[in-house]
Design a protein around this nucleic acid. Structure first.
Length: 582
RNA sequence: GCCAAAGUGGCUCAGAGGUAGAGCAGCUCACUCGUAAUGAGCAGGUCCUCGGUUCGAUUCCGAGCUUUGGCUCCA
């Protein structure tokens, strides 16, 4: 562990030094450039510049060439502590550096690093000499715009991203990893496997589920509904639009208006498409007097909501404007809160694990500065969340002040097959809505009391979850999720009838199956089935028909011939029931 | 929204100031084949949209729309 930390630190130093080398190269090319910041980041580094002209991809080659040249010169990195005045003179023409200098707290040391041709205001540390950098272990990756200090009101700078490692071999491994990410891209797989599409001409950020994608979605939703029933939830359905009164009361029009689709006018009232389901579930709650005996109420809905996401942030299925939350709202008494939270967390973990995610981390977010609700409630809720996490023995981090203004929350993040983290589940307390809608229940003492309200989504949104699943499995879904579990390929036209018979038999058994009766040759059909990543391709000809057998080609290419059909049906059923990967 | 790049048949992409091409997919015909592509032929495009420059624009210029990579990592 300690070794790893040392290695990580070393890696970070290399990356940071690399960014200085890049800055020197860029300044060689553009002596008038303004330089901003250039830190090491995960897997690499970047540097922000204010350049006289936009950069082209070709410029990266030139910068790379100059960087290699700089590295080969074995330049020494020299650290020097200077006074503020000296620093200000040194960076006289560099407005961003001067701003950074100003931001260094009084009393803190101001240091500069010089590597020969380039001096930067920098805390360090750096390598001793460019000797320690490997000119074949870095690569400039992309050019991007970035606001100075990340603020939209600030000028846009040109950022160059690069990756750097201590050896060419590590670089190679990382570049291969990037290739793998590209291959798994859900947008690419969605097209190749004919799962979904987006249509810019019909509205950006809105998802169309094709038959194959819809089959997977149904498998997810069926499982979701069944498990919710089993775990004490009731399903509700609510409308897609509501009058402005509803959104004014909920506070969405106050806090969230820019995230909502604009209103539709009808009967002199504005109607809004829902960005969230909660106000509707509250309407159901309000429909009757509620007794402590009715609580806890657990209402779930696969509710489709619409949000106006910024045009530039839309991304495949991961960031869309119309999506289906696997939403639920729990209305509980204060006494029930602890048990409910523990239960919600347990259920979340069960769901995530069912989909093959085993590496799960929790993030507990506490009260932010601007927030509503009594402190006691915040404390009680936050502690309930913490107890639940600890009871499950989950690794967790606390994000102090990271909660929503209306309540503390737990987010669950999973790691996918190639180590990327995705946030899926969220469990949030809400002290705002019960107050705003004046929710009450009658307690056993006859007093009306305010219930706790908990929002939770386990998969997050079906669209995004599907995208994550698709990338996690690289399109090779385990049979229980596979859109086409079995494809039957007859070796020749004479066996079309037997193939059809088998297809029906499999369908009767509850499998998603089809027979390929096109006039392609058998080889082409097998290839087509493999390309679609179907888990089982069943090949049948005379031998199989006579003996009531199937020959199976598994997704990975493995072949087993002459399996009795009934035995194969059992094998598939077992794989589906156990949610096994094959 | 902002910066940059891109938008050419269903898909992946090539191309040039003189109204376009490949592979795959589709359709037709022939072949009926035992574990990753049978062959031949046909059809398919307002070259994103709207303006401008030009004898002529899909190509050059401008605007718009959309997509992609970023805009969190703090000297």
């Amino acid at each position: 562990m300690a070794d790893k930390e040392v290695a990580d630190e070393r890696q970070e130093t290399i990356r940071h030094s690399m960014s200085h080398v890049m800055a020197e190269a860029v300044l060689e090319m553009f002596p008038d450039a303004q330089i901003a910041i250039g830190p090491a980041i995960e897997n690499g580094f970047y540097y922000d510049f204010d350049l006289p002209r936009p950069l082209l991809t070709e410029d990266l080659d030139e910068i790379t060439r100059r960087m290699k040249d700089i590295i080969s010169q074995n330049k020494t990195f020299e650290r020097k502590v200077v006074s503020r005045k000296e620093a200000a003179e040194l960076f006289a023409g560099q407005k961003y550096k001067l701003e950074l200098l100003d931001a260094i707290p009084e009393g803190e040391e101001v240091s500069i690093y010089n590597q020969g041709g380039f001096t930067d205001l920098c805390r360090g540390p750096h390598v001793k000499s460019t000797k320690e950098l490997n000119k074949d272990a870095f690569k400039l990756l992309s050019i991007a715009g970035a606001y100075w200090r990340g603020k939209e009101s600030n000028p846009m700078l040109t950022r160059i991203y690069g990756t750097a490692w201590s050896s060419p071999k590590e670089l190679r491994v990382y570049l291969d990893h990037l290739e793998d990410i590209k291959k798994r891209d859900h947008r690419k797989l969605g097209q190749e496997l004919d799962l979904f599409s987006l249509h810019e001409e019909a509205g950006p950020g809105l998802v169309y589920w094709h038959p194959r994608g819809a089959k997977i979605r149904l498998a997810i939703e069926d499982f979701w509904r069944n498990e919710h029933y089993k775990n004490g939830y009731d399903m509700v359905y609510t409308p897609h639009v509501g009058k402005s009164w509803l959104w004014e009361t909920s506070g969405h029009l106050g806090f969230y208006k820019e995230g909502m689709y604009p209103p539709m006018k009808m009967d002199n009232t504005d109607y809004y498409v829902k960005p969230m389901n909660c106000p509707f579930h509250i309407m159901i709650y309000q429909n009757s007097k509620r007794s402590y005996k009715d609580l806890p109420l657990r209402w779930c809905e696969l509710g489709t909501v619409y949000r106006y996401e910024k045009a530039g942030s839309l991304h495949g299925l991961m960031r869309v404007r119309g999506f289906t939350q696997d939403d639920a709202h729990l209305f509980v008494t204060p006494e029930q809160m602890d048990d409910e939270i523990i239960e919600v967390l347990r259920f979340s973990l069960f769901m995530l694990r069912s989909f093959g995610f085993t590496d799960i981390k929790a993030y507990l977010s506490t009260r932010p500065e601007h927030s509503v609700g009594e402190q006691e409630r915040w404390d009680a809720a936050t502690e309930a969340l913490r107890r639940a996490i600890e009871k499950e023995g989950l690794a967790y981090q606390v994000d102090e002040g990271g909660g929503a203004f209306y309540g503390p929350k737990i987010d669950l993040k999973i790691k996918d097959a190639i180590g990327r983290e995705w946030q899926l589940s969220t469990v949030q307390f809400d002290f705002n809505l019960p107050e705003r809608f004046k929710l009450v229940f009658t307690d056993r003492d006859g007093e009306e009391k305010r219930p706790y309200m908990i929002h939770r989504a386990l998969l997050g949104s079906i669209e995004r979850f599907f995208g994550v699943l698709l990338e996690h499995y690289a399109g090779a879904f385990p049979p229980w999720l596979s859109p086409e579990q079995i494809r039957v390929v007859p070796v020749a036209e004479n066996f079309f009838d037997y193939a059809k018979k088998l297809e029906m038999k499999f369908r009767q058994a509850g499998f998603r199956a089809s027979a390929d009766l096109s006039n392609d040759r058998m080889n082409a059909k097998i290839r087509a089935s493999q390309m679609m990543k179907n888990p089982y391709t069943v090949i049948v000809g005379e031998k199989e028909e006579t003996a009531d057998q199937v020959s199976v080609r598994y997704r990975g290419g493995k072949q087993v011939n002459g399996i009795p059909t009934s035995e194969f049906v059992e094998e598939v059923r077992k794989a589906i029931d156990t949610k096994a990967q094959v």
